[in-house]
Write a protein that binds this DNA or RNA. Structure first.
Lengths: 151, 151
DNA sequence: CAAATCCCTATTCATACAATAGGGTTTCTA
DNA sequence: TAGAAACCCTATTGTATGAATAGGGATTTG
């Protein structure tokens, strides 16, 4: 399983957003600087996440982005599919845009792809954005604690 | 989940091999023609599968390829990893060659990738080459049967 | 020895990913 | 009401990987 850079940035951005005070905006510039993401590239990504209904934006001075919904309600599948298109061929029919995985394959191979895709989706569905943000928080704290022993 | 063309061809080739009379060789040329695979490309693929110990070969007149082991003992994970490299980051340390998935990611994202990869692997491990060959056989029979109704 | 077959490396071609560029639009505030 | 700060949008460029082709070399068998 491999994530594109774009998806990785999207996840980072949303984890950042989830850790940001609720209801307040954050700016692309700061997010880009603090996470080592090219600013212009990040703009594209946030735009896609906005169109997917995961974040919303406020223009003008003092504007920026914020989560459109509470992080507990954002499944990680949804984030990944917003950027990469459908994970599983099964529900790819109703989805618009990209072509579904496992298209004109032979029956056996097609089934293999389908089962693997469904397994991915099930695994991803167990994680919400809130979980990811908490995980990141805890990792940061662990890092902090371990540093103390080294001094 | 997306398979590269190369992996797709590898699976097709091995399904073909599994359905071939046991212990007898088959030739690249026929395999390529019957499955619409570029012959030279297929040579590369079979070479990799040979180095992975999944098929073996016999040179010279009357030579060709054959399965190195019984199809019941070839997990589909093994086939896919022979071509694409390790699926899961966990066991990628001992594996040689390609760089593992989910490398320098942030902790939360890295964990997400790891869990999804393990889910893929578990799903793939439930299928052996023998299962794939049987599935393909049954699909072919279904196709045959349905054709009769159309006449 | 010659035909059939696998063996191996290098190169080209195509596509998708990653990033950059350049301006346009909206909103707020002084 | 001007202008700065922010998002909005499309197009283009660069780069890596995947897909395929090319050309000959090595082995075996009849």
């Amino acid at each position: 399983m491999r994530l594109s850079k774009k998806t990785e940035y999207a996840l980072k951005a949303l984890i950042y957003a989830a850790r940001h005070p609720e209801g307040t905006t954050f700016q692309i510039k700061e997010l880009a600087d603090r996470n080592g993401i090219p600013k212009k590239f990040l703009e594209l990504i946030l735009l896609e996440l906005k169109n997917a209904g995961i974040v919303r934006s406020k223009r003008g001075v003092g504007g920026g982005y914020l989560l459109a919904r509470r992080p507990e309600t954002v499944r990680s599948t949804e984030i990944i599919e917003a950027i990469e298109g459908p994970v599983s061929p099964a529900k790819a029919q109703q989805d618009s845009g990209r072509k579904p995985p496992g298209e004109g394959l032979s029956p056996a191979v097609s089934r293999l792809v389908r089962e693997a895709s469904e397994a991915i989706e099930a695994a991803l569905d167990r994680w919400t954005l809130a979980d990811l943000a908490r995980e990141e928080q805890e990792a940061a704290e662990r890092r902090q604690r371990n540093l103390m022993y080294f001094i």
